[in-house]
C-alpha cells in the first residue's frame, strides 16, 4: 500500500529574519493523524519552521503543501481556511480581555454562533481550570493558565492540523503531562495531525509518533520517536 499523502509537507524550506538565514533547506512532513515532534537547541530554527508554515514569515525558497496541494503564498488566513491552527510560543493572549472574549476571538473564523457555542463548550471541557474564570481578565491569569487559554484558542475552531510552539511553557510537571495527553487524545481519537515544538523532550517523545531534530537550521535526525527512547541515543542526536 502506498504511503498516505502527508497532511503537511515542508520541502527544502529556506527563510530567516532580515538578511539572516535561519532555515537552510528544511524538509519534513506530518502524516494524517500523526503527532510529530520538532526538537533541537534554542536558535536551531524550530519556531521559525512553524511561523513559515503558517504564513507568518515569507518563504525565501522551497514550499509548503497541505494534503499534497502546494500552497503558493501561505498566509494565516489561507491556513485557517484549511483548518490549520497555530499556537505561538509564550502564551500570547489578550491580557485586557476576559477569558471568554479571548476564546471568542480564537473562534472568529467559525461560520455561526452555534459552532462557536459548541467550540466553547468543547474547549472548556478540555481545560476545566478555565471554566470558572471565563469572566476574568486574561492578564490576571497565571502563566500556566494563560498557556491553557492560548491552547484553547487554537483548538476552538476544531482544526485538522495543529502547529504548537512549546505548549508546555510555564506549566508544572503534572499539568504538562495533562496538556500533552489532551494533544495526544486529539490525534488518536479525532485524527488531528500535530506538529509540536517542545523543549521538554522526554515528555513530548512520550506522545509523538515521529521526531525531527533541527540543528543550525537543518534537519540533523528524523525517525520514529521510539528510536530515541534509549537515553544514549537521545543524547547523541539532541545534545
Amino acid at each position: 500500500m502506498p504511503d498516505p499523502q502527508p497532511h503537511l509537507g515542508i520541502y527544502d524550506l529556506h527563510t530567516g529574519y532580515a538578511k539572516k538565514e535561519v532555515l537552510g533547506g528544511v524538509t519534513l512532513d506530518v502524516l494524517p493523524g500523526e503527532v510529530v515532534a520538532l526538537i533541537g537547541h534554542n536558535g536551531a530554527g524550530k519556531s521559525t519552521v512553524l511561523k513559515a508554515a503558517f504564513g507568518m514569515l515569507p518563504i525565501w525558497a522551497g514550499h509548503v503543501a497541505l494534503q499534497g496541494s502546494r500552497i503558493n503564498l501561505p498566509s494565516p488566513r489561507i491556513m485557517l481556511g484549511h483548518k490549520v491552527a497555530y499556537s505561538p510560543q509564550g502564551n500570547r493572549v489578550f491580557g485586557e480581555l476576559t477569558v471568554l472574549h479571548n476564546l471568542e476571538l480564537g473562534g472568529l473564523t467559525l461560520a455561526s454562533k452555534a459552532e462557536l457555542r459548541e467550540g466553547l463548550a468543547r474547549v472548556l471541557l478540555l481545560f476545566p481550570a478555565l471554566r470558572g474564570r471565563t469572566k476574568q481578565r486574561a492578564g490576571t491569569l497565571s502563566g500556566g493558565e494563560r498557556q491553557m487559554l492560548s491552547l484553547a484558542m487554537a483548538l476552538i475552531t476544531s482544526p485538522r492540523l495543529l502547529l504548537l510552539d512549546e505548549p508546555s511553557l510555564g506549566l508544572a510537571a503534572p499539568t504538562t503531562r495533562k496538556a500533552l495527553d489532551v494533544i495526544h487524545a486529539l490525534s488518536s481519537n479525532q485524527g488531528v495531525s500535530v506538529l509540536i515544538v517542545e523543549q521538554k523532550v522526554r515528555e513530548v517523545l512520550r506522545i509523538a509518533d515521529r521526531v525531527f531534530v533541527l540543528r543550525n537550521g537543518r534537519v540533523s535526525f528524523s525517525g520514529k520517536a521510539s528510536a530515541l527512547e534509549d537515553e544514549a541515543r537521545l543524547r547523541a542526536v539532541y545534545l
Binding site: S142, G144, A172
Partner: peptide, 9 residues
C-alpha cells in the same frame, strides 16, 4: 507550586 498557585502574583 502548581499553575495558578500565586507564585508570579
Amino acid at each position: 507550586g502548581p499553575n495558578g498557585a500565586g507564585k508570579t502574583t
